[in-house]
Design a protein around this nucleic acid. Structure first.
Lengths: 131, 131
DNA sequence: TTATCGCCGATAAGAATTGTCGGGTATAAT
DNA sequence: ATTATACCCGACAATTCTTATCGGCGATAA
């Protein structure tokens, strides 16, 4: 349906939270409670963002997550692609679909996709945080 | 996953086909055969595009579909929204999700969505056809 | 009259997302 | 040391969405 997954939604909410309250680490359960997000699912999301280098984590009591870099250095496209995989406008680009040999729109849509990606590259977590 | 549905894919392929070969009407089975698309599914897609005013149809033998207006007057966003409903970046915008009262990214993401829509408004079927 | 095609709703089949569970390791505080 | 909190990770159930199919109907040209 051309919409963000909840994974990505949760990730962006958490990143904005960390951008706004970045003095110390915040735990997954704490953020989940604040935004009414299923705790274990948010944990999964944050773990993946750590693996992708967007977050830093700290185990133990008083542990939690913090941004791995400044909020203005993290783009929305990074978050989306970290959580959903590369942004593909057409099914053809991913699996070789039945239309592959005769697909007439793959190439023209590629340039459309690049413009869309451009928008998401130009939007940072910092922008989400101040607006 | 932030990707076009096959419905939209099929619709764009068909519209480009009609833009390129617009002398007479083309039937759903014919287009489906050409691009290896399940015939009855493509029929459904084209019927919906008729209802939305993007295509004109003609019943009977030698009947089929043709563009309702010039290819440069049909935008990609019209096709996507006709087949997938309005483009919503966040789940929040659609159903009232569990985060609604505390969602911190709904507003900032709205402006992101508008930029994305802008890209798709600026792309016409004619552009797909010549590229 | 017949064959072709558009039109529509209902529904099955398949895939992806969302959410849950269980078992592990790290670490700070007591 | 022990305990409580939290990160980490894979597997799996539940749910939802997408994709595809089916059956019956009306329109129209040959």
């Amino acid at each position: 349906m051309f919409r963000l997954s909840k994974r990505a939604d949760y990730g962006l909410i958490a990143l904005k939270h960390l951008a706004l309250h970045g003095e110390h680490a915040h735990s997954a359960p704490e953020i989940a409670r604040t935004y009414n997000i299923p705790s274990e699912l948010l944990a999964k999301v944050l773990q993946r963002l750590v693996r992708k280098g967007l977050l830093a984590s700290q185990a133990g009591p008083n542990g939690g997550y913090a941004l791995a870099r400044g909020a203005e250095m993290i783009t929305v496209i990074e978050v989306i692609e970290a959580l959903e995989g590369p942004l593909l406008l057409t099914p053809c680009e991913a699996d070789d679909c039945e239309q592959f040999p005769v697909c007439s729109i793959r190439d023209p849509l590629r340039s459309v996709k690049e413009k869309v990606v451009g928008v998401l590259v130009d939007t940072t977590i910092h922008e989400l945080a101040v607006n």
